[in-house]
Design a protein around this nucleic acid. Structure first.
Lengths: 359, 359
DNA sequence: TCCTAGATAGAAAGCGCTTGCTGTAACGCT
DNA sequence: AGCGTTACAGCAAGCGCTTTCTATCTAGGA
């Protein structure tokens, strides 16, 4: 690496000019060697690279971004980084973004930002990324539907797109007129299929633990559920739906509430797998067997879902695949879907937590 | 926000100078208003802020970083972003970093980078962060112990620290002479306590599913386990230890292997909770009951561990608390621990997956 | 009343890099 | 031999912001 016997190296941070001086070339040439976007004679390049190595030079990112009017930052927005649902997508996106380990060429810094599901934070992060002149931004997970926020988001996304930032929505509904590409999960279809499976088993009284209100994911999954009920002539009792957060705790409490409202329920459909796990715990604590007394179903098919006892019936979403594709699109390495929108379907996974209703 | 009837706004990206012109002040004044680090008359500030708003101005981050020689990026390195172990820490760190939603003042961009456990990627990410002149870097999770990588890391961290980047290690052993602060988990102590609990229950033949070799976390937990065995006069059979990855799949396979090697084992201690879940699945699939036939123990106490059936006996690590503290230290908002090093202890959580041995 | 200090605002010099344009050899062609 | 090319390399002008230093003005104090 470095020969270590050159005290003057450490005087200050090394600049392009220092490298140029050592390699006996102009700064321009060093820049071109580093960026590899201009012909440089092999011997010169060699000399420059040696100097870079000897001086242990690290490019000044901000300066570079300023001069080139582009940065190598790619933002990844997630609702909850502690939730594997987002972790898996983010990991897949980031690995395609390149960053380290990615294929050659643009060594980009994929940065994941945790909005905690808060619309304001989402907006603030977008501003921060805009400020950094991010090369691309990938937004994952459902969106908030409150009108003011929706409008603000649209405006912000449009502005980002105008500034040349590529926008990709992954697992989120399309944002019309923002220039964003969308990979949308078919939450409605999945929800419908799941409930139809339960109905097919003979269930007629199904509780539903929905996610937070005003979120697209929540609404779509619930709509699918209701569509299934309706398609089979089942009239839904308003008491059968409870809203909560997308976590285990919420599932536990909601299930208790559901049981209180109508003890005759024979199935509980949860907004996602974590919620379903909480539901299972609540049922067990209430002395009910799964699926003999009550069937349970989740959504997403996160890795731990198969380890539940009994294993969770759920809808598998190809999180990693979708993330990878979103990452490639963000990097301009894959053709965006026709019309800018693609629907990604889930797959029903029937496992032990669902069975024929009791009695 | 903006009155919308000024087509000239959108001509090009708005700069500080544009704002200055509109507010009838010099660019210097605008900068000062925005940074709030210099006295500006209230009426002037007012005028400037109005102009900022009207023009919808967004600071150019790279330019700002270049001129000020500092950036508002804070890097968070994790081994596996899809693993809640890291997700929880990263979330806690990021929320303290400020970023959006954080308390007032420096609005920093906390970026989490997924190394996938690869030493090279780790190094590359550090270089990328160095290039961006990151304000701070938090490294989470165990470190790789291979000598060359260790040396390279040390050098890199020292260089970062020299450049003014604050370095915090969270859940990772101290890195001597690098100027890094460390919040280290007491993996050894936790491992020892866990195994002692099992021994106390009467177990004498315990299998151990360790993590990948050459990682500090793996080694420390294993050392604790062995210390407990030794302290109780139990001679370990080499066949009782199997190495694998930190995931469920690995736990499943390792358990099968363990059972093959010695069917008389009465307990299986796993490197972490995910592995333990895999172990449970393997035991069940082998027709063994937990804990009647074989006891199982995990490590970390991730949220889903309590939902295992039976609930997992494990060691709780205060992931969120440690992350939050690491974040505050990184931001200079909390005094670093004396000596730059603090040990964070785990807490034994005895639950249903461990019981007295059969026979 | 004159002078000094305190409070603001502006001028201008960079920060370290990229890139359009301008040389200047060496090459191949007629 | 003469000339258009091609292949490199350098010059120098910024990119948009921060910050030091200087200028101005007002308010006290002697």
């Amino acid at each position: 690496m470095r020969c270590g016997a050159r005290p003057e190296d450490d005087e200050m941070t090394v600049t392009l000019a220092d490298v140029a001086a050592r390699a006996q070339v102009s700064p321009a040439t060093v820049s071109r060697v580093l960026n590899g976007n201009y012909p440089v004679a092999a011997t010169t390049r060699e000399r420059v690279l040696r100097a870079v190595d000897e001086l242990d030079y690290v490019l000044n990112g901000p300066a570079s971004s300023l001069a080139a009017a582009t940065s190598d930052l790619v933002g990844i927005l997630v609702n909850d980084i502690a939730d594997p649902f987002f972790g898996i997508m983010a990991g897949a996106i980031q690995s395609e973004i390149g960053g380290p380990g990615g294929r050659a060429g643009g060594e980009r810094l994929g940065v994941v930002c945790n909005t905690g599901g808060s619309p304001e934070r989402e907006l603030t992060y977008l501003t921060l990324l805009q400020r950094q002149r991010a090369a691309a931004v990938v937004l994952t997970g459902g969106a908030t539907e409150a009108a003011p926020h929706k409008a603000a988001m649209s405006a912000k996304l449009r502005k980002l797109a105008d500034a040349g930032t590529r926008i990709v929505l992954c697992g989120r509904p399309p944002a019309p007129e923002t220039g964003a590409f969308a990979l949308t999960f078919d939450n409605r279809g999945g929800g419908k299929e799941l409930t139809e499976h339960l109905i097919g088993l003979g269930h007629r009284r199904l509780g539903y633990i929905a996610g937070p209100e005003e979120r697209t994911t929540t609404r779509h999954r619930l709509e699918g559920h209701r569509a299934a009920l309706e398609a089979h002539g089942i009239t839904e009792d308003p008491r059968w739906t409870v809203h909560g957060r997308y976590d285990r705790r919420s599932g536990y409490e909601a299930t208790l509430e559901l049981l209180r409202r109508d003890p005759s329920l024979t199935a509980v459909v949860a907004a996602n797998d974590s919620v379903a796990l909480g539901a299972c715990a609540a049922l067990r604590d209430s002395g009910l067997r799964i699926p003999e007394d009550v069937s349970v179903a989740g959504f997403d098919d996160l890795p731990f879902s198969i380890d539940a006892v009994p294993a969770l019936t759920t809808v598998r979403l190809p999180l990693a695949e979708a993330g990878a594709r979103a990452g490639r699109i963000a990097m301009g390495r894959e053709e965006p879907p026709p019309g800018g929108i693609a629907t990604v379907r889930g797959e029903l996974m029937v496992r032990g937590s669902s069975g024929v209703p009791r009695g």
